[in-house]
Amino acid sequence: MVTVQKRPGGAGVRRLRNTSLQLKIVMAVTGAISVLYLVLHMIGNLKIFLGRSELDTYAEFLRTVGEPALPYSTLLWIIRVVLTVSIVLHIVSATILARRAARARPVRYAATPKTPGSYAARTMRWGGVIILLFIVYHILDLTTGTLNPNGVGGAVYDNVVSDFAPSRWYVTLFYTLAVVAVGFHLRHGIWSALQTLGHSSGARRHAQKVTSTVIAVVLTVGFLAVPFAVTFGLVA
């Protein structure tokens, strides 16, 4: 045992790697950007209930906005780049933190009762992986059209309707599971970001947790409304 306790590195030495707290801040900020995007995405999706032309026009608007000052699709690409960078940073930070956590807790307890910690950790880590897989599928399905039965560029309404047709109930089911995973991720994630950014307190915690849950539920319902409407024939 080291008897003379001296701090490793000593006072004032700058360490090169990021502190866990810095990584958490990155996750909070990139998570917040993603939530903002999800809100806009959901509002766009819901235009399907206004009819084919409304939705397709909106999709086209996203590409033509800013023209002629900006080239075609500029805004869309800016959004895509920001979002991709955010999600990559979010995942990289999460991975580093998860690996550090695994190193920090190398031995498991023999007795493992249900603890509040394990629930949130499971939701976030495994939920995050499910969401990532879903995003990949989702892009191939409804962005590039590769996996979409219709797959016509610009024909958003038709693509969606054919995607969630009653016969393709399993797509709707997978989509539902993924969106629910997103909901759980947000329920803990939004509050967690507020805590990480130092805006939580005992007095505000309840209100913040309620708000997180409400946002998560609204987004989940909003995103599920479209596939369910298609699958059950409300939108055809």
Partner: peptide, 13 residues
């Protein structure tokens, strides 16, 4: 003072 190097601490002694 331990951090400043002026106290050698011997815990569990």
């Amino acid at each position: 003072q331990i951090d400043a190097g002026r106290v050698e601490m011997h815990s569990r002694h």
